[in-house]
């Protein structure tokens, strides 16, 4: 960004941009995105190449994160796993976000019987523990990345919709919404042009945190063998591969674990900074 475009931003956004939460969180996510887009440029070795001459080597200069039981370079596998796990962060949440925001806005604004039916559906979904329900859906559809996205979206949209509905209901009580009605604006215009920009902030913040949770969930399912399938490099899969060697080759599980924690932290910090930036004044 050039100095000219920066100086055009309003002061509160500039202040939020200078906060450590944004700088650290944004830095981590930027780095993760680069790893995900261009893993070949960062990874020193082929993540799938066996090397029987270097099996389960501890971290060294040649292999900073060590090697696994087939002699594959852990650092390279962790970097290639960014591609899968960032994909999980995005695709396991974005459709839930879109469906949830639309459904939540409509029922929150119109209320009535649609809201009642919506409420019962939400109750039915949140009765089950989240992970149990996702595992049940994946078990029905069969393991694999795409089915995992479908399963998470089916369960997860409810949380976005519930949050959005409550925010929209709060905003609808404001007189600017009545003013829009008195102006003769269509309900689509009122919901999406007037209410949505005022109601979306908590949902966007939740989205950032949820991406961290999605990575954890994706890794958990990968660990359980329900998500990404070996030999694909995915953090959960990597941790699962190392679990039999936890006392002899601890780096096999620890290094992908650190990557999960770091990425999760990045999304959380970024979420905080975004919430600050989007908060309306006055």
């Amino acid at each position: 960004m050039t100095a000219l475009t920066l100086s055009r931003l309003p002061a509160p956004v500039l202040q939020a941009l200078a906060r450590p939460a944004f700088l650290i969180g944004g830095g981590i996510i930027l780095m993760s995105t680069l790893f995900a887009l261009f893993p070949a440029a960062f990874a020193p070795y082929d993540p799938l190449a066996f090397n029987y001459a270097a099996i389960q080597q501890p971290p060294s200069l040649a292999h900073p994160f060590g090697t696994d039981n087939f002699g594959r370079d852990i650092l390279s596998r962790v970097i290639w796993a960014y591609r899968i796990d960032m994909m999980i962060a995005l695709f396991a949440t974005i459709f839930a976000l879109l469906i949830g925001v639309t459904a939540g806005s409509l029922v929150g604004y119109h209320g009535g019987w649609a809201d009642t039916i919506f409420g019962r559906c939400v109750d039915a979904v949140i009765t089950f523990p989240f992970l149990v329900l996702v595992i049940a859906v994946v078990a029905m559809l069969g393991p694999g990345l795409i089915n995992m996205f479908v399963a998470i979206t089916l369960v997860n949209w409810v949380y976005y919709a519930r949050l959005m509905r409550a925010e929209v209901m709060t905003q609808t009580a404001h007189d600017y919404v009545s003013a829009g009605r008195v102006m003769g604006y269509s309900s689509g215009r009122i919901i999406f042009r007037h209410i949505l920009p005022n109601a979306i902030t908590p949902v966007l913040t939740f989205w950032m945190t949820d991406m961290a949770l999605a990575i954890l969930l994706g890794s958990s399912l990968g660990y359980l063998g329900l998500g990404a399938q070996p030999p694909l490099a995915e953090w959960g899969v990597l941790i699962a591969e190392g679990r039999n060697f936890i006392f002899t080759a601890w780096w096999m599980s620890l290094c992908p674990g650190i990557a999960i924690v770091l990425t999760g932290l990045g999304f959380s910090l970024l979420g905080d900074a975004v919430a600050d930036m989007l908060r309306p004044k006055g």
Partner: peptide, 22 residues
């Protein structure tokens, strides 16, 4: 209805909630 609302307008009590903050 739109024409009617164009002809009959309302000014609200609370100046802090009657304008879209964004």
């Amino acid at each position: 209805r739109q024409t009617y609302n164009r002809q009959v307008q309302m000014i609200f009590q609370d100046p802090y909630s009657s304008l879209n903050p964004r």
